[in-house]
């Protein structure tokens, strides 16, 4: 497989979306091509970072505030 094709497939590969044939070809390529390997690793690191951003807590009073507003009924209904 050539670099151009690998680079094209990487975004899906990173999210485990590939055929078995693609999988084998990409792995084979990544073992030998430094540039694509680097591209793969930086992309993977980015996704790992994104997916570990912690969630912000909701203030306990938030739901009551929403329900109060709704019961005021100024928004139609």
């Amino acid at each position: 497989m050539i670099c151009k094709k690998v680079v094209e497939l990487l975004p899906r590969f990173i999210e485990n979306d590939f055929s078995e044939e693609e999988y084998n070809d990409i792995l084979k390529h990544l073992k030998t091509c430094k540039r694509c390997k680097k591209e793969y690793e930086s992309m993977k690191a980015l996704i790992d970072k994104l997916e570990t951003i912690p969630l912000i807590n909701v203030p306990p009073s938030f739901k009551d505030a929403v329900m109060k507003n709704i019961k005021k009924g100024k928004n139609g209904r």
Binding site: I56, N57, V58, F62, K63, V66, K71
Partner: peptide, 26 residues
């Protein structure tokens, strides 16, 4: 009307986080 609180329960955390990362102001 009260049933709406289940919707708030289910979605508040997701929505607040979504909006917070979009606008960057708590």
């Amino acid at each position: 009307k009260d049933a709406f609180c289940f919707i708030v329960d289910r979605y508040q955390k997701g929505l607040i986080n979504f909006i917070f990362h979009m606008i960057g102001h708590y």
